[in-house]
Design a protein around this nucleic acid. Structure first.
Length: 222
DNA sequence: AACTGTCACAACCGCCTCTTT
DNA sequence: GAAAGAGGCGGTTGTGACAGT
């Protein structure tokens, strides 16, 4: 539709970041904070697209990032949150401090998918493979599915078609065995924001028997 | 040693959503 | 209310590392 590109592509570097570029970016953000990504590259003396700077900072350079392997506990959290949220990587990442959406997305695609398949569980629906109809391998179908999953009405991919939309309780959904209790609650739409359903917040706590509990509150279900 | 296949992950692309004008 | 700009998100790709033959 004629939208101008986010940056002047002819004058931007692409590909892997160099140490010097990283240093420039870190130094600039340390000095000025995260501000306008569009103007940041110029201000920091980087021949990069603003989006690229943002991604580099968020996924790699941020000081609070937790590098290294995912723990079993993190695996479980990701699997359960994915069952609830679908491919909402940023929301899942928001509940795993120190992890980024990109990291989780990659980890899901490379490790967890296989892990679930090995257990005989469909990674998309979280149901036993035998109960899942043959998935479409058609690329266009996948794209269409991803598009529809981004609409608010179907934000809980894989469960919106369950037919039990009235009882939005995690315990009513078939779920792989886990030590994590997903204690969901639905509140009245008291806050008058008209956004579509959103998982507003979650908190992690421990029950008396030491089991980890994650509380997810769906504040605004449409 | 050379080749091939697989895996892991950083980075890019295009679209969507939110905010501002 | 419409249009434009900017940020954010999710899917996909490119590539280096490693393992197997």
């Amino acid at each position: 539709m004629g939208r101008s590109p986010c940056c002047e592509k002819a004058h931007t570097n692409k590909g892997a970041w160099t140490k010097e570029e990283d240093q420039r970016l870190v130094a600039y953000i340390k000095a000025h904070g995260e501000g306008c990504w569009r103007s940041l590259p110029k201000a920091a003396g980087l021949m990069r697209c603003g989006k690229s700077c943002r991604l580099r900072w968020i996924n790699y350079l941020r000081p609070d990032l937790k590098r290294g392997n995912f723990t079993e506990e993190e695996d479980d959290i990701i699997i359960n949150l994915h069952g609830l949220l679908g491919n909402k990587w940023s929301q899942i990442a928001g509940r795993l401090p120190g992890r980024t959406d990109n990291e989780i997305k990659n980890y899901w695609n490379t490790h967890i998918k296989r892990k679930l398949l090995a257990r005989g569980i469909d990674p998309q629906t979280h149901r036993p493979l035998s109960a899942v109809a043959a998935p479409s391998s058609n690329r266009q179908d996948k794209m269409a599915a991803s598009r529809s999953s981004r609409s608010p009405e179907t934000s809980c991919a894989g469960h919106s078609s369950d037919g039990d939309s009235g009882g939005a309780s995690a315990s009513s959904m078939p779920r792989l065995g886990s030590s994590i209790d997903l204690n969901l609650s639905i509140s009245q739409p008291s806050q008058q924001k008209t956004e579509a359903a959103a998982v507003d917040a979650s908190s992690t706590s421990y029950s008396s028997d030491g089991k980890k509990k994650i509380c997810l509150c769906f504040n605004r279900l449409g």
